[in-house]
Simulated assay, not measured.
Amino acid sequence: MDRAVSRAFCLLEVLASASEPLRLTEIAELSGLQKSTAHRILATLVELGYARQEASGRYAATLRAWEFGARSAAQLPIKRIAAGFLHGLHRTIGETVSLTLLSGTDVLYLDKIIAPRPVRFRTRVGSRVPAVLTASGKAILSQRPDGPDLVRRSAEQQGLDIAAVEAELDEARRRGYALSGYSPGVSSIGVAVGAGGAAAEAGLSVSAPGERLAGESRDRVIEALLEAGARMSEALARP
């Protein structure tokens, strides 16, 4: 691995993950680099347009990296195919719907349509979250042959009770959907999506305050999710 390249990406990730512009000292601490090294790499990132330095001297990421990421995401067949199903699900249910993709032991949020009655979410498009913490992630893992191994690895990393998580996924496999309360005050229901007999790689989820996902409303959401997931899987299987 080229150290210079890895350091540059490390600093870019630090800037992109920050909620506000950072001082050089903060960047050096978060990246584990010496200030002189961080300063030199930041100067290059600024010159290339991937970072900017504000009048205060703090640094922030620009939208340059987002441009490449957005283009790559747009080229994914699953994102193109999922668009219609996401919008249809959103119109039917009226709650926030998301498309996620399994990436290692995490899920990556590829798309999200926010409800007219918004709630506070921890996730946004581009967010990466441990799969075992999300409804769609649990649904995906419950349908994969390597799910048990991924569950153990992720549960250990998160300090979770492996047996409890495995039991939860067994239940998700049996009923066809998974539940989660990852964001405080928000409940989520997720289903897995896969092409034909291939292992599930994506998931659809609906999120809303717990009181809006109860009783008949919850039953309606589950029915709509299962139908959308099945139809999307069929669409992915077509040549």
Results as ranks from 00 to 15, higher is better:
V5E: 14
L11W: 07
A16P: 01
A16V: 01
A18W: 06
A18T: 04
R23K: 15
T25S: 14
T25W: 09
L30V: 05
L33E: 01
L33H: 02
L33W: 02
Q34I: 00
T37V: 15
L42D: 09
A43Q: 13
A43P: 02
T44D: 15
L48R: 14
Y50V: 06
Y50E: 13
R52S: 13
Q53G: 04
R58V: 00
R58T: 14
R64Q: 15
A65V: 14
W66D: 15
A70M: 13
A73K: 11
L76I: 04
P77D: 09
P77T: 07
I78N: 07
A82N: 11
G84T: 08
F85L: 03
G88F: 06
G88C: 00
L89M: 04
R91F: 05
R91S: 06
T96D: 01
V97R: 03
L101C: 12
S103P: 06
V107L: 05
L108R: 12
Y109R: 12
D111N: 09
P118C: 12
V119L: 07
V119D: 05
F121L: 15
R122Q: 14
P130S: 05
P130T: 00
A131V: 01
V132F: 02
V132T: 08
L133G: 05
T134I: 08
S136W: 10
K138D: 02
K138T: 05
K138G: 03
P145W: 02
D146P: 02
G147Y: 01
D149I: 09
A155D: 03
Q157A: 15
E168G: 01
E168D: 15
E171N: 04
E171W: 06
R174P: 00
Y177A: 02
A178K: 03
G181W: 11
G185E: 08
S187W: 12
G190K: 07
V193D: 04
G196L: 08
A199T: 05
A200S: 15
A202D: 08
A202Q: 02
L204T: 10
L204C: 07
S205P: 00
V206R: 03
V206W: 04
A208D: 00
P209H: 04
L213N: 08
A214D: 14
G215L: 08
R220Y: 00
I222Y: 07
A224C: 07
A224V: 03
L225K: 02
L226V: 11
E227S: 09
E227F: 07
M232D: 01
E234N: 09
A235W: 05
L236Y: 09
